[in-house]
Amino acid sequence: MTLDEIKRHIEQHLPDVALKPVRESLLVENAADLTRVVEFLKDDGVLQLNYLSSVTGVDYLTFLECVYHFYSVENKTYSLQLRVRVDRDDPHIPSLVPIFRGAEFQEREAYDMYGIQFDGHPDLRRILMWDGFAGHPMRKDYQQEDSEVLDGDDIEWLRKHDVSVSEEHIKMAESLRTGGESEETQSEQAEA
């Protein structure tokens, strides 16, 4: 079955769902429709797309996207790729875990790396990074820490644990705290 045939078949049964073909995939324009479409894909006698292969989050600067790949264990001749787009600032996508158990860890990873909230996920918390981590590292605007320089928090911690710190490190931490902006412009100039 080609992409057009699949699209027409879905639109026959779910007429109010807006689908748009993008390259070799179907974009579900309204994220709230996702669960209905996926339930239909799984339960339909003709399509029988009952195997969810992968769930991926992508950052496109102006929006975040989640891509799903579906295959069928019975009809082995075709596959379907679905996409959903959400806003960067408050991304919410309905979770597929009630329909496909296999989405559990992958949605947790998309949440951890991109910050996409999956509504209805039984246990949405970080999976690869630790619980106290702040930020979503795979987003394009994530800034890594500078691991060669001790900053104020480090010096405080070291003092609390009776570890001796040399004057040099203390001075560097102070300069980071006060002259933070001048340091950044210096490193930008060096990189350019």
Partner: peptide, 30 residues
Amino acid sequence: YAIPDLGPKGLIPKFNPEVWQPREDDHRKE
């Protein structure tokens, strides 16, 4: 040796100055 904590951006502290010092000729940042 002091066991580091897991902070919001990485480890606290980033290294143990009694054990290791950063190299002066490390230009990875640039």
